[in-house]
Design a protein around this nucleic acid. Structure first.
Length: 755
RNA sequence: GCUGCUGUAGCUCAGGGGUAGAGCACUUCAUUGGUAAUGAAGAGGUCCUGGGUUCAAUUCCCAGCAGCAGCUCCA
C-alpha cells in the first residue's frame, strides 16, 4: 500500500496503481469535478496517471484545481495542443516543433507550407472553439522509442523525429497525447479533457529559430493565452493594456523626457530638459554615495586608439557589434576588414555564416568571395582583393607579398594596421581606466584603487534589438573599476553588491532577480585560465549565498573576461533587462600587465572589479519611468510644484510665490494663462506634477497657497514657509509614495529577491 | 541580423487610383473663473524615401529606411 500525505496533513492509504482521479473521487465528488491534475511528490501529473508503485515512505499528494497556478500551466499547455490541432486542420502539411506553456500563456512553433498570418487568427480560434466544445479527453500513451520515432515519421512530423534523434534517443520510451484525432509527442501533463479550457485567445505570431538556434531553420511561433474563465482572460487583456500605458517610450514622449530622432540616428537617445534634470539628480545621488565609499572621479574621452582595444580584446572580439573603426589612411577600413577575415582562417559552416553576415553588415564586398566553393578559395579571393587595394591605393607593405598563407598575410596586414592612426568609438571604459591605473606606480598600501566615471560608450546593436531607452547604441554607464589585491576581492565585491542593493532600494525597485553569470564550459569564447575562472565563479556564488540572496546561477551568462552578478528587472510588458552589475576579472590585468608592489617588495598582479549599480543611465531611466509610471517622487520630479492662478488678477502674487519657492531651491513653474482652474489642474495632473499650488483672492490676502498633492489630494491652505518645510522633508527623505508593479502584476519567475 | 506587422498634421488615428480628414495640442479673439477639459475663429501635411505600373500613385507593386512584436545577440 502507498501512503499519501495530503496538503491538510492527513494521510490516506491507497493501492499501488491507483490513479489521482480515484483519490479525488474518494475525497469528494466536488473535488473530483474541480480536479485538473495532481501533484505527486512535487511533480505535476495527469489525473489518470497511475501513482508510482515504488513508494518508500509518504508520498506528498495534492489535487490541483483551477485555483492553483500550476493547474493554469497545465491548461495552457493543453491549449497549445488544441491550437496545434486547429492549425493542422486548417493548414495541411504543417510541421510541429515545440509548444510549451509560458508564464502568461503558451506558444507553438510551427512550419507550414502556407504561412500563417494574423488574418488567420479568427478562423484558428473558431476551429479551436469546436475542439474545446467537443470536450474530448486527453489520452496519454507510451511507445518504445523506435516505435515512437516511426509513429512521428508516419505522421510526417519531421521536427519530432529530429528531436528524438537529437535528444530523446536515450529514453526507453516516449509518451504521446491524443485529443480527438490529433496526436502529439509530448511529456505532459494535460487536462482531463479539452472542455476544461474556459477561455483562450491567439495573440501574435513571430519568427523563432528551431531549437532557438540562429543557424537553424526559422519557424513561425504562434502565441496565445488561456484561462479557466472568460473573466480571467478579460482581466488579463485589460491588465496588458494598462501596462502598455506605462511604456517608457510612450511616457517619455508624453512627458517630454527624451526623444529619438531618425535624423540624429536610431538607438541614440536625445535627453530633453525634463529627462536630463532627472538624470542629473540621479548622477549626483550616486556620485555622493561613491565619494563616501572611497571612489575617485576620473574622465576619459569618447574615442581611443584601436591598439588599446586590440590589447583589451574588445576590438576583435566584438567586431560586429561596434561602429566601424576610424582610420586616417583611406585604405585602412578595407584592409582592416580583410585582415579580420584572413585572421579568421578556414571556418566551419556556422562561422562562415556569421562571417558572411558580418561582411554584409560592413558592406565588405570582395569580388568572387560568395562564389568561391571552398574556404581556401574564399581566402584567396580576399587575398586578391587585398593585392588590388594595395596597388590601387599605393600602399607600401613589403611584408605582404612575401607572405604565402592566410595567417602570415593577416600578420603582415596587422603589422601595417598597427602603424596606422586608427580609433574606435569606445565600447567600454575599462581600457581607459586601466591606463589611468598604470600612469603611476601602485603599492598594496593604496589598493583598492577605485576609479569612477559616467562613461559614455557606443555599441552597434543589431537593428532588431533597439528598443526605446532600454537597448540603445550610445549610453552612459555609471561605471567604475576597482583594482584590488586578491585578499580584497571578497570585501570589495561584497561592498558593491551592497551598493547596488542600496541604490535599488532607494528607488523602491524591489521587483528584481539576481543572476550569477557563469561561463559555459562548452563554449570557447572566454579568455583566461580555467583556474582563474573557477576561483572567480566560486567567490561570486559564495558572496551572494552568504548574503542569503535568492539567485539563479546561469551558465553561459558570463562576460568574456569573467563571471558576473547581474540585477535583472522587468519592463511593463514583462521583458527582462539587466541593470546593475558586478563583474570579477582576472584577465584584463594580465592583458595589460597591471602590477602593484606588495608588502614583500615584489610585484603582484591586481584583480579588477567592473561594476555599475545603475547599469546605464539610459536603461535605468527607461525602467524608472515605467516603475513610477512617469510620476517621479518629489526628489526626482523635474517639475516639483506648479503655481496656478485663479484668474489673471493674481499673476503678480503667483509669480512672487514661484520666486520664493525657486530661491528655496525647488523646481517650480507657474501657470498664469487665462484659463479656468479646472483646466490648469487637469493639465498639471496629466503632466504628473507632484504639487499644485492654487492662488486666488484669499491666498493673496493672507500670503498663503492652497496646496494639492497629486496623490493625496487637497492639503489645505498654508504659508509658503510651511510648504517649503513640507517639500524639503519629502525631498530629504527621498520619499517614494507611489510605484507601479514591475511588470503589470504579471507574475514573476519566482526568482524574486527583495531585501 | 531573421520572421511578421506598421509608416497620413506636433500627438492619437480615420480614409482611399483623380483638390487630404477628425479629435487633442498650437496661434488669435472673447470670457476673469476656486480644484480633472469655457467658447469661437485660424494656421498646420513631399500622406517615410527611391524606383516601377498607370493618362493619373499618398493609395497598387518592388527596394530601402524607421518603428512595433517575437527570435537570435548583448563587453
Amino acid at each position: 500500500m502507498l501512503t499519501l500525505r495530503l496538503p491538510d496533513g492527513s494521510t490516506r492509504e491507497v493501492a499501488p496503481g491507483t490513479r489521482p482521479r480515484d483519490v479525488a473521487e474518494s475525497i469528494g465528488k466536488r473535488l473530483a469535478q474541480a480536479a485538473v491534475a495532481a501533484k505527486v511528490n512535487n511533480v505535476v501529473l495527469d489525473l489518470d496517471r497511475e501513482l508510482p508503485s515504488d513508494g518508500n515512505g509518504d508520498i506528498a499528494f495534492q489535487i490541483l484545481t483551477d485555483r492553483d497556478a500550476e493547474a493554469l500551466a497545465v491548461l495552457r499547455h493543453s491549449c497549445a495542443h488544441v491550437m496545434a490541432s486547429a492549425v493542422m486542420r486548417l493548414f495541411p502539411g504543417a510541421q510541429l516543433a515545440f509548444g510549451p506553456a509560458l508564464e502568461n500563456g503558451f506558444y507553438y512553433d510551427i512550419e507550414s507550407p502556407t504561412p500563417i498570418r494574423e488574418d488567420d487568427f479568427p478562423r484558428i480560434e473558431e476551429e479551436m472553439k469546436k475542439i474545446v466544445k467537443a470536450a474530448e479527453p486527453f489520452e496519454r500513451f507510451e511507445r518504445p522509442t523506435a516505435e515512437a520515432r516511426a509513429l512521428c515519421q508516419d505522421m510526417s512530423q519531421h521536427y519530432k523525429v529530429e528531436h528524438i534523434d537529437d535528444d530523446l534517443k536515450q529514453y526507453p520510451s516516449i509518451s504521446f497525447y491524443r485529443v480527438g484525432n490529433f496526436i502529439d509527442m509530448c511529456r505532459g501533463p494535460h487536462l482531463p479533457h479539452a472542455g476544461r479550457i474556459g477561455a483562450f485567445k491567439v495573440l501574435s505570431i513571430a519568427g523563432a529559430y528551431w531549437k532557438n538556434d540562429q543557424n537553424r531553420k526559422q519557424l513561425q511561433r504562434l502565441y496565445g493565452t488561456a484561462f479557466f474563465s472568460q473573466k480571467d482572460l478579460d482581466a488579463y487583456i485589460n491588465q496588458l493594456e494598462e501596462a502598455k500605458k506605462r511604456d517608457h517610450r510612450l511616457l517619455g514622449k508624453q512627458l517630454k523626457l527624451f526623444t529619438i530622432s531618425q535624423l540624429a540616428g536610431s538607438g541614440l537617445i536625445l535627453w530633453m530638459p525634463k529627462g536630463a534634470t532627472i538624470r542629473g539628480i540621479l548622477e549626483s545621488f550616486i556620485k555622493d554615495e561613491l565619494m563616501k565609499r572611497g571612489y575617485e572621479p576620473v574622465y576619459s574621452p569618447h574615442i581611443g586608439r584601436l591598439e588599446l582595444y586590440r590589447t583589451s580584446g574588445h576590438f576583435p572580439y566584438y567586431r560586429d557589434a561596434q561602429y566601424p573603426p576610424m582610420y586616417h589612411h583611406p585604405a585602412g577600413s578595407a584592409l582592416d576588414l580583410a585582415q579580420h577575415r584572413l585572421a579568421a582562417g578556414v571556418l566551419n559552416e556556422k562561422k562562415e555564416l556569421d562571417m558572411a553576415q558580418f561582411m554584409q553588415l560592413t558592406q565588405f564586398a570582395v569580388p568572387g568571395y560568395a562564389e568561391a566553393k571552398t574556404q581556401d578559395d574564399k581566402l584567396e579571393a580576399v587575398h586578391r582583393y587585398v593585392a588590388n587595394v594595395l596597388q590601387a591605393m599605393n600602399v607600401e607593405m613589403p611584408d605582404y607579398p612575401k607572405a604565402t598563407d592566410a595567417t602570415s598575410r593577416a600578420q603582415a596586414l596587422l603589422g601595417w594596421l598597427k602603424d596606422q592612426e586608427g580609433y574606435l568609438l569606445k565600447p567600454m571604459n575599462c581600457p581607459h581606466h586601466i591606463q589611468i591605473y598604470k600612469a603611476e606606480p601602485r603599492s598594496y598600501r593604496n589598493l583598492p584603487v577605485r576609479l569612477a566615471e559616467f562613461g559614455t560608450v557606443y555599441r552597434y546593436e543589431q537593428t532588431g534589438e533597439l528598443s526605446g531607452m532600454t537597448r540603445v547604441r550610445g549610453f552612459t554607464q555609471d561605471d567604475a573599476h576597482l583594482f584590488v589585491t586578491p585578499e580584497q576581492i571578497e570585501q570589495e565585491v561584497g561592498a558593491n553588491i551592497d551598493l547596488v542593493l542600496f541604490v535599488l532600494s532607494s528607488l523602491g525597485l524591489n521587483d528584481y532577480r539576481v543572476r550569477v553569470g557563469l561561463r559555459d564550459p562548452g563554449a570557447n569564447k572566454y579568455v583566461g585560465s580555467a583556474e582563474d575562472w573557477d576561483k572567480a565563479e566560486q567567490t561570486l556564488v559564495k558572496l551572494v549565498s552568504s548574503r542569503g540572496m535568492n539567485y539563479t546561477a546561469e551558465k553561459g551568462e558570463a562576460a568574456f573576461y569573467g563571471p558576473k552578478i547581474d540585477f535583472v528587472v522587468r519592463d511593463c510588458i514583462g521583458r527582462e533587462w539587466q541593470l546593475g552589475t558586478v563583474q570579477l576579472d582576472y584577465n584584463l590585468p594580465k592583458r595589460f600587465e597591471l602590477e602593484y608592489v606588495g608588502a614583500d617588495n615584489k610585484t603582484h598582479r591586481p584583480v579588477m572589479i567592473h561594476r555599475a549599480p545603475f547599469g546605464s543611465m539610459e536603461r535605468f531611466m527607461g525602467i524608472l519611468i515605467e516603475h513610477f509610471a512617469g510620476a517621479f517622487p518629489l526628489w526626482l520630479a523635474p517639475e516639483q510644484a506648479r503655481v496656478a492662478t485663479i484668474s489673471e488678477k493674481f499673476t503678480d502674487y503667483g509669480k512672487k510665490v514661484e520666486g520664493e519657492l525657486k530661491s528655496a531651491g525647488f523646481r517650480v513653474s507657474g501657470d498664469y494663462r487665462p484659463e479656468k482652474i479646472n483646466y490648469k489642474k487637469r493639465e498639471a495632473l496629466m503632466e504628473k506634477v507632484p504639487y499644485l499650488l492654487v492662488v486666488g483672492e484669499k491666498e493673496q490676502t493672507n500670503g498663503t497657497v492652497a496646496a494639492t498633492d497629486r496623490v493625496a489630494g487637497d492639503l489645505g491652505v498654508m504659508s509658503v514657509a510651511e510648504l517649503c518645510k513640507h517639500l524639503e522633508a519629502e525631498v530629504r527623505e527621498r520619499r517614494i509614495r507611489q510605484v507601479s508593479t514591475g511588470s503589470a502584476g504579471l507574475t514573476d519567475t519566482g526568482a524574486k529577491y527583495a531585501e
